[in-house]
Design a protein around this nucleic acid. Sequence first.
DNA 1: AGGGTTTTTT
Length: 785
Amino acid sequence: MTLSAENVTAIVDKLYQNETLIAKVPKLRAALGLPDSAEWKTLYSSFGVGRVTAHTLLTHIFSEWVEKNGEEANFMEGLTIRQDNNMAVSPPPGLGKLDPGNTMQSELAKYRMRRMEQTWTPSLNSRFRIGQIPEQIQQQISSLPILSVKAELIEAVKKNRVLIVVGEAGSGKSTQIPKYLAEAGLAEAGLIGCTQPRRIAAKSLAERVSVECGTTVGGLIGYVIRFEKCVSADTVIKFMTDGLLVREFILNPNLSGYSILIIDEAHERTKYTDICFGLLRNVLNENPNLKVIISSATLDKERFSAYFDNAPIFTVSGNMFEVEEIYDQFSRDQLSYLSGVVDKVCSVHFNEGPGHILAFLPGQSDIEKASEQILSRTRNLMGSRHLLKMKIVQCYGLLSLERQNEIFKPAEEGYRNVVLATNVAETSLTIPGIRFVVDCGFFKQSEYDPNTGIEELKMKRITQPQATQRKGRAGRTEKGKVYRLYTKSDLISTFPSTGLPEIQRSNLESVVLQLTVMGFKDVFKFQFMDTPRSDAVCEALEKLQDLSALDEEMRLTPMGRQMAQFPLDPSLAKILVSSSKLRCSEEVLIIVSFLSIQNQSLFNQENYQATKDLVKASMHKFSHRSGDQLMYINIYEEWRSAGRSKHWCVQNHLNAQFLEEVQNIKDQLAEMMKGLHLPIVSCGSNTVAVRQAMCAGFFRQLAKRRGQYDYAKYPDSDRVRGSFFIHPSSSMFPVRPVPSFVMYAEMFRTSKMYMKGITIIDPSWVASEAPIYYKKMRALYPNFG
DNA sequence: AGGGTTTTTT
């Protein structure tokens, strides 16, 4: 028997399966310098040394042994492993070909060993077993409802390829399931991957589970989100966003290296969760070693099961306190929910005992209005009775991180917090200490209209599961109450039972491009759980053709392949790629980085009624006559020359976090461009090249002035009727004379159809930057361009 | 002329 990667791998795997084996092998134990009672697993896990290191170590020890004794057979015998004894274990993930002659590897292993011996020997048991896990956390873990079904759960996962796990909030499924499965030895053949819809959730779950295992993040437990990677060769449980898993499919279509994938929060049905579903269905046929767990709230469990070939459903109870439901006698319309919330918050404050109030409202402006009204109504009464004092806390997505952190600060003594929130507080943020929930029954949601390319913000009735979710926010720590501003019969008979999945109401350009890169030639044959609108798919295909990412036969072009490398919208990727040829990629990198940030605002948006004049003055200082995107460059450069100072940002009403994010994205995009040999060159102050590059992606988004302030789509087609307006938040809004021709980055409908991200361009540039689209348009409109 | 729910990408 000779030393080979497979041999050593098999030994390591064997050791993993039987952790005490090593202690029983005197020769090996002596070689490792372990005390008699030591256990192999304890050794590696206490220092976060994983399989690969163990592997290297063994290789090293083995070769030293052979060198000294010249007998391989004895060594192997000492391990009591025979070749016939199930040696065909697959190698650990990420190992690749082992090089026994790699001195660096073995030296590093020896170094780690020495360090280990110094610190570890005296307190082996207390270090990993219990000592590392604080008493309080141990208690929390052991009181989770899921613990009572641990054994059954592990059995069910062992028996099935796909399992649907249904559990209420507080069951502990997100943190405990991956841990249980790893403990049960189900991660032997590969990683356990867990997806989450949000970056914060992926990160904080990794941190929490690490604490529960007495390790630090990036060792046994790690996470990967866009632009942030915290895993190592030792990682067994990996948390990630669902969008990132979709990206991984491109590189690794069979998901080799994973033993189990857990899709968590599946009921939210995000765009990327839905794509993962379709991809996983395929992979289950290709990769027989893979198991899948779909983890969801109670909603729609039968549909999940049916979609995955009638996979069994495993139910876990929750850990919620009772929440009393109080309904209104009549339903309110969209005009009176605001006053309803104000009334209800005040009466709860005046009549109920201690505990914070959480009120759900549809938007930021509602929150600001309600704030004012509640304040003025309670001001006179403050202190006049033995009342609790009240503090109003606003909570919505565009709030800066500092303000969001305020929400988690404990209330001052003698104060009741009234949290006025949008649906960020429904799932993304959990606010502690809430006893009362006031639910207005509405929310806002965007829907994309593929025929016009316009995103519309619609006021909608919440769904029944949403109502349950909102109610649950009052029962996290003790018994609570929910005040619903609608009747019980309306909830049961007129509120929708499910919402529209995101994939059926969003732009599909990037989805179609990604699926094409993965080799799905016919997107219509991809088995979605809910099929996207066919006009949306067609629209995406046509746009990708216009971008020359797909050819006439819908095949991927080299340009399309290049575009798909970037974690950007196809339009933005095209602009970036085109900028190299136009010799303005340095500037366009800045612009694309600004445009790719969606959920933060560049200028301070808080209390905008009070601060808007100051914000406008600051914006005016940076503005550029050619448009918003050129202003971004001004801001970026001045921010850099101010030394990226936070103080400077505050003075100029800019969001420091936004600009740091721009820097981060820009650096990473620059790296990707280098990898693709796309030169990064500056055009200096020649803004023509920059604006031409933007035509390569935004060519469809042109508008021509029609009246005093209103615009018509250019070319004026009957698909998009009505007038467009420059959004008041644009730096071009106050510009006189009103520009006669503009290109916009974004279009959405609220009270009007608004264009945002305005650039002044020359329509003749479309001919060179988007030749395919130009030809099509010329055939229909002879004067186009 | 006058203001947007929420997420996310090797």
